[in-house]
């Protein structure tokens, strides 16, 4: 799996961090999401998929 995050679209809702803290964090200065693992380990894949489904700003895509 490959995760792509578009920081320009991100609104800092934090939804991805709740879904998948192994894969996403937020920048200290403005709360915009950062990608911790572009290729998540197998046990974090479902969380990353959920993050992509839930992201309100459509800023996350996953390629299987």
């Amino acid at each position: 799996m490959k995760v792509v995050l578009d920081q320009d679209r991100c609104i800092g809702s934090g939804q991805c961090v709740l879904s998948s803290p192994e894969v996403f964090d937020q920048r200290d200065d403005d709360g915009i999401a950062v990608l911790l693992a572009e290729q998540p380990p197998a046990d974090a894949e479902e969380g990353a998929r959920e993050a992509a489904r839930i992201c309100p700003a459509l800023a996350i895509t996953v390629a299987e």
Binding site: G12, G14, Q26, R27, D30, G31, I32
Partner: peptide, 16 residues
């Protein structure tokens, strides 16, 4: 909208 919202987003992020 984004320019204004980003001024206050950090205060509401998960770790804060």
């Amino acid at each position: 909208h984004a320019a204004q919202r980003r001024l206050v987003t950090a205060d509401f992020m998960i770790k804060r």
